[in-house]
């Protein structure tokens, strides 16, 4: 392709219009930033970015509307996790029973290594119990590697209750209704 070069006038070839234009633009920005306080910089630890709704940050475990652990230790997330950040220790045959009435078990330990986690969201997608969600935390810090491995209590505390998603509530109501006889239509 041949780029046509515009023929410059003598005035333009003196670099003078370019110089004046440059002075004008840089001065405008200088004045706006210094006197108008229009700097685009977000000064991080003092000002924090408010992430939009639906942002996929760190994955945390959630509780259901009654405050019980939703996770049933099926280990699908551990299996699907690409960087192998999740480690689940199931309760075993004689382990602690689940919080919830209609779940068979819950994990004895559930660890996410936040140094390995890539916030991909596969765990959230694969979870049949809707027990793990990517939430809006994006800035995780710690003073040691050990501190960055989040255990079950920490994940549950950070995750909070996710009462909006109540997968088993309707099923539970349905089951309760069927306990009385005759069953209502």
């Amino acid at each position: 392709m041949i780029v046509k070069r515009a023929k410059l006038s003598f005035w333009e070839r003196l670099y003078v219009p370019a110089l004046l234009g440059g002075l004008q633009v840089t001065w405008k920005h200088f004045r706006r930033t210094l006197f108008g306080g229009k700097a685009v910089t977000m000064e991080y630890p003092e000002q924090k970015w408010v992430v939009p709704e639906g942002y996929r940050g760190a994955p945390y475990l959630v509780r259901d509307q009654t405050g019980d652990t939703k996770c049933v230790s099926c280990q699908l997330c551990e299996f699907v996790c690409p960087p192998k950040a999740i480690k689940i220790i199931p309760p075993g045959p004689a382990g602690q029973p689940a919080d919830r009435a209609n779940a068979e078990k819950m994990p004895r330990e559930f660890e996410i290594n936040m140094l390995r986690c890539i916030f991909c969201g596969f765990c959230q997608e694969v979870c049949p119990e809707e027990a793990i969600f990517l939430q809006r935390d994006y800035s995780l810090t710690g003073l040691s590697r050990g501190e960055m491995i989040y255990d079950k209590e920490k994940l549950l505390a950070l995750g909070g209750t996710h009462a909006g998603v109540q997968k088993w509530k309707d099923k539970l109501d349905e089951a309760k209704e069927q306990e009385t006889f005759p069953v209502k239509g």
Binding site: F30, T33, A39, T41
Partner: peptide, 13 residues
């Protein structure tokens, strides 16, 4: 500092 102001930044502070 001047560079920062011209580029709409705050510079070393």
């Amino acid at each position: 500092k001047v560079s920062a102001f011209i580029q709409d930044r705050v510079g070393p502070n």
